[in-house]
Design a protein around this nucleic acid. Sequence first.
DNA 1: ATAGAAACAATAACAATTACTAATTTTATT
DNA 2: AATAAAATTAGTAATTGTTATTGTTTCTAT
Lengths: 131, 131
Amino acid sequence: MPALKYSRQREAVRHFLMTRRDHPTADTVYTCLREEFPNISLGTVYRNLTLLADLGEIQRISSDGGAEHFDGDLTPHQHFICSHCHRIYDIRVDGMDSLLDDAQKAAPGRVESCRLNFYGVCEQCASDDPA
Amino acid sequence: MPALKYSRQREAVRHFLMTRRDHPTADTVYTCLREEFPNISLGTVYRNLTLLADLGEIQRISSDGGAEHFDGDLTPHQHFICSHCHRIYDIRVDGMDSLLDDAQKAAPGRVESCRLNFYGVCEQCASDDPA
DNA sequence: ATAGAAACAATAACAATTACTAATTTTATT
DNA sequence: AATAAAATTAGTAATTGTTATTGTTTCTAT
């Protein structure tokens, strides 16, 4: 793995994610950053998102199919994903420390992190479309 | 949504997943089922995997990028995914019920399910490649 | 048997992501 | 400041995983 070298584009990706409260996709990051860097390339965005996620400076959110989402909020939290509109909400669930401990007891290796998504129907969709 | 109609291919997909203890991708299912159904189509495999997952008869495992994995084991369990070899191990962590309750308190909607993946380095990789 | 609906195989289309290459930036060293 | 090596970039092509389409076959209820 090569030595890291500063790049304005990478800082822009990081900064962009840090200042958002939502969970953009690579394409959203790309589109927004084009205002500041009119000829930034989509490959650059992907490369830096992957790099930052590997460094643990941002978080990757994988759900069913579709595009991956990214999250610049590193404070411990989880996601509630609406099965209907696919919006991603931040939620804060207690007891995660003990969960990791419990997992460590059961896992065939060293547990370093976990990702926890909750699924259901959000209030917005429930009221819009009462089933 | 149309009425379900029997199909040998769908049963084969279901049966295949039920009898596996691992977590194959659509492509693996396809390749293996071709022995029994030499001209089953990949589209059929995808359609039935999606259908069975929507019915809750199998489980979909989403992790970082790459292909989705599927799991025919419906007993409550979680997954430990090795960041190195990407193998998926089943683990059984306690306290999931209270976790869902806690999530329900925090979520902006009705929580129906959750998916929990743990990440780390498995024992196999740790001993093969001592870092 | 037959008719209508669901499922199929085969393949084309699609979207998300990655790989490639030549040019540009960064960083360390003069 | 000039220079050289390495990392990064933009632009584009290629790949991958998945879904849609179409004409044919298989179920199921009559």
